[in-house]
Every structure is written in structure tokens, then in C-alpha cells.
């Protein structure tokens, strides 16, 4: 998905002039970020650069101090992560945010259980076959493969568990998937699997915001790389024309990039 094609469309999610303080510390300064349909935007930066803060502001975990968030071109205000989720913005957290003693379907539907019709449903009886069917259909549509849907996650590997966490986000994210260090805890093969999932999600047209420290991962999967340093967006890189060295230089500030204006 080329940069120009993405730019031609309206951003799904757009942040304009975001500022955020923690006491005297300026965590974010006039940050602008646009997320277009069908792209993987990597958000990179050193520890403390403000990546997670930016995501937390975008998804309503932290309150917005100043600036505007536009969702499908309309200004929005998320006062909780729940509200962001209701708009179709799902986040995959870096610690595996799954219940390991439940199976994949139960995890995917956690907090959104389908109940049986009628009185049984009113009593809280679950409709497990329906949840399983919806999961299979949705994941097949997205061409996301999760092994062993009926297995408790403790019996799966770390990568497979992360696969379930990603699948859950994909299942419910109708607009944007945000992944905060999704490969941080994973081995090589498991990482490859998660990166595959990221591409599959992107190919369905749902954009992915991919936060990572791991530059090789970023260059493998990103269509566009946004570099944060000390709470500011210092540059935007095209992975096809830049190298990992360029990204590291931009992150650490050893080379001065001219900040490119994002439309």
C-alpha cells in the first residue's frame, strides 16, 4: 500500500496538535498523526518518546488536554477506552491481555458474550456454538488463522496466545487496530506469525498502528514510519527508501531530519 494511495483518502483517525503534560513534564508537544485506511503506520521512538502516551490519549485511556481527535473526519472525544472500542478502535496491549484459562472463543467474546435466546439468555446462559461460529466466520473472512479455537490458552505458545489477542482486536475493530509492542515478548517464529496477522488485517482495509522498538519488525511490516522523539514527531520515513540506520538516527536525534508536513 503505497504512501500516495493512502494519502489520497480521508484518514480514519487523525490527531491534530495534541499536547499532554504529566506535572512539569511535557510528554507530547503538538503531535499530528493521521491513520489512513489499509495502511500499517509504525510508531517508533526511544523509551519515553511518548508512543504509549499518544496511543493512550487516542484511545481514551488518558484525557485529552489540548488538540483535536478526528474520527472519520468528525471531532470525537473518548472519555474511556470503552468508548473508543464502541467506535471500532481496538487495542492490543503489550502484556498479553488474555485470560489464559479460557479458550480462544471465550477470550475473543470476553465482555461481549452472545447469550441464548429467550429466558435462558436472560438468565445468562451462553450460546457457545454461536460464538464459535461467528468467530470462525469472521476470522475466515479476514483470512486470520487461529489454531485450536477450543483449547485453553495455557496450552498454546506465547505467539499463538498473542495471535488470539490480535484476532480479538481484529474481530471487533471495524475501523482501526492499535498494537502496542505486540511482538515484545515473542520469539522469532511467533513474531513472524503476528507480523503475518498484521498484514492480513491491513489487506482487509483496516489500518494498523504498529508500535515497536524492533526496527527489523517495523521495516518488515510498515507502509509508513512515524518517528517520535521527546514527545514530538521528528520525521516520517518511507520504509522503501530508508534504512534501519536512518530510523535509529531519527529516534536518537543523531541526524537532523527536516520535519515533513503530513496532510
Amino acid at each position: 500500500m503505497a504512501l500516495s494511495a493512502a494519502l489520497a483518502r480521508q484518514p480514519v483517525l487523525e490527531a491534530r496538535g495534541i499536547n499532554k503534560h504529566f506535572g512539569p513534564v511535557q510528554a507530547l508537544t503538538e503531535v499530528n498523526l493521521s491513520v489512513f485506511p489499509g495502511e500499517v503506520v509504525a510508531l517508533i521512538g526511544d523509551n519515553g518518546a511518548g508512543k504509549s502516551t499518544l496511543i493512550n490519549v487516542l484511545t481514551g485511556v488518558l484525557p485529552l488536554e489540548s488538540g483535536t481527535i478526528l474520527f472519520n473526519g468528525e471531532p470525537v472525544h473518548f472519555s474511556s477506552p470503552h468508548e473508543a472500542r464502541e467506535c471500532g478502535i481496538e487495542t492490543v496491549y503489550q502484556d498479553l491481555a488474555v485470560a489464559p484459562h479460557l479458550d480462544a472463543v471465550a477470550n475473543i467474546f470476553l465482555g461481549r458474550e452472545r447469550r441464548q435466546p429467550g429466558i435462558a439468555g436472560a438468565l445468562g446462559f451462553l450460546n457457545n456454538p454461536l460464538m464459535r461460529k461467528e468467530t470462525e466466520e469472521q476470522l475466515a473472512k479476514l483470512r486470520v488463522r487461529v489454531p485450536g479455537l477450543e483449547r485453553r490458552l495455557v496450552t498454546l505458545s506465547g505467539g499463538q496466545r498473542q495471535g488470539v489477542a490480535v484476532a480479538r482486536a481484529v474481530m471487533w475493530a471495524s475501523k482501526v487496530v492499535i498494537m502496542d509492542e505486540p511482538t515484545a515478548a515473542l520469539g522469532v517464529a511467533q513474531t513472524a506469525m503476528v507480523l503475518d496477522l498484521v498484514r492480513q488485517v491491513r489487506d482487509t482495509g483496516i489500518p494498523v498502528v504498529f508500535i515497536s522498538h524492533n526496527m527489523p519488525n517495523v521495516y518488515q511490516v510498515a507502509d509508513r514510519i512515524v518517528v517520535l522523539r521527546l514527545g514530538e514527531i521528528v520525521t516520517e520515513l518511507d520504509p522503501k527508501t530508508t534504512s534501519i540506520e536512518d530510523a535509529v538516527a531519527a529516534m536518537t536525534g543523531s541526524t537532523r531530519f527536516v520535519t515533513k508536513e503530513v496532510v
Binding site: 491481555a97 470476553l110 465482555g111
Partner: peptide, 10 residues
């Protein structure tokens, strides 16, 4: 199994 994950899931 995971109280934090349950909370995040709503």
C-alpha cells in the same frame, strides 16, 4: 485467570 485483561475487555 487475568483480572486486568477482564477489566480491559469491559
Amino acid at each position: 485467570s487475568n483480572a486486568a485483561a477482564s477489566r480491559r475487555a469491559g
